[in-house]
Design a protein around this nucleic acid. Sequence first.
DNA 1: GTCGTCGTATGACATCTGTCATCCGCCACT
DNA 2: AGTGGCGGATGACAGATGTCATACGACGAC
Lengths: 204, 204
Amino acid sequence: MSPTIKVLLAEDQSMVREALAALLGLEDDIEVVAQVARGDEVLTAAREHAVDVALLDIEMPGCTGIEAAAQVHKALPAVKLVVLTTFGRPGYLRSAMEAGADAFLVKDAPAAQLAQAVRKVLAGERVIDPTLAAAALAEGANPLTDREREVLRAAADGSTNAELAAALHLSQGTVRNYLSTAIQKLAVRNRAEAVRIAREKGWL
Amino acid sequence: MSPTIKVLLAEDQSMVREALAALLGLEDDIEVVAQVARGDEVLTAAREHAVDVALLDIEMPGCTGIEAAAQVHKALPAVKLVVLTTFGRPGYLRSAMEAGADAFLVKDAPAAQLAQAVRKVLAGERVIDPTLAAAALAEGANPLTDREREVLRAAADGSTNAELAAALHLSQGTVRNYLSTAIQKLAVRNRAEAVRIAREKGWL
DNA sequence: GTCGTCGTATGACATCTGTCATCCGCCACT
DNA sequence: AGTGGCGGATGACAGATGTCATACGACGAC
C-alpha cells in the first residue's frame, strides 16, 4: 500500500470543515494535513504541506475556490483539485474545469463519494456528475459580456441606476443599456429576474 | 455513565449531514440514531426513534428547521432542540427561540461546540452565541406585518406587480402599497434592497 | 365605545426602468 | 478596406414602480 494521501481542506464554515475532516479521517489511506478557511490561503498551505489533493469549497472569503484552484493549478500542477460546492450550477462546473479542477462534487451527493473522488483524481481520473455535465453542456456558455456581468453583479444588491453609474464610472444611460441587453439575453423581464437567473446558472 | 444520547440529524445536504454524523460519532456518549433530509420528516423520525436531541438545519426542503422545531416542541416536549444554521441572522435566532429551541449554533462556530451543545441542552442548559443574542435584542423585532412579509417574499424572485397581484389575489395598487410601506419600514429605496435587507435580518 | 392597527382598495402624481434608434472609437478578423 | 463585436454615450418614449392621501370594514385594547 502506498503512503497515505495528503489532503488540504478549504471551507469557510468551521463546523462543516471539521466535520468533513472527521469524515475523511475515517479512511485509512487519507490524511487531512491542512485546513484553511479562506480562498487566499489555499496556495501557500498547499505548498507548505506538500499536499496531493486540495479539496476546495467555492464560496469562501478571500477568493473563491475556483480562483484558488486556478492559482494552485498554475503554481503546483501536480496537485489534484477537487471542487466541492453547495450549488450545482452549471456555470460553476464550467469555470471549475477551466480553472483546472479534476473533480466537481456537490454537497448533496452521498458522503462516500468524497473519499472516492479523492482516490480517483489521484489515479488520474476526472470525477463529474454526469447530469450536471450534461446541463453545463446543454445550456451553452455565458452569453453576457464582461461589462454586462459587472453591471449585473453590481445591481444585485438593489442599487439604483444612479448609484451603479457612479460606482462604475458610467453614464446612467449606459448602465440602463447594459442591463437592458442582459435582460434580453437572459430572456427575462427585469433586472431582479436577470440577477436571479444569472446566479442560478453560475454566470454572475 | 448514563446510556448514550440519541440524536436525530436533519440537514438536506447529504455530504454535510453524513460528515456531521461522523463528527458526532467520534463522541462516546452520543449516537446518531436517525438522519433526515427534509423538514417535514423530522417529527415522525423523532417519534419513531425516541430521540433525546434533534439537531436541525434551518434551510431544508419540506419545511424549515424552525417550523420542524415548533412541531417537535409541541408534540414531543421532552425532546431537546438544537438549531444549526449557515446564517447567523438575528431574526432566525428569535424565531428559533420562539419555536422552542434550546440551542442555536452557526455553522462557522468550532466543531467542538456541536457535541458540547448536545450535552448542555440535555442538562437543561440553553446554548446561544452571546454576540448573536445581543444583535437579536439590539435590532428589535420584525417591523413587517404578515402581509407585507408575504408580498416581499413573493417579490423576491423578480415578479412584477401584476404577477404578485395575481398570485396573492390582491389588486396591483395594494401590492404597491405593501411594498411601499415595507420599503419605508426597512429604510431602503426599492423592493430589491428591501428583499436583501429583510433576508439579512432573517425577517423574510 | 372609541382608538389604533391591519388588510384591502382607489386615484393621482413623480420618478425609475426598460426599450429602441443612433452614434462614436477601438480592436480583431478577413 | 471592410465587417463586426465591444465599450461607451445620448435622447425619446412607454410602462413599471414608489409615494401619498384617502377610504372602509374588522378586530383588539383600553
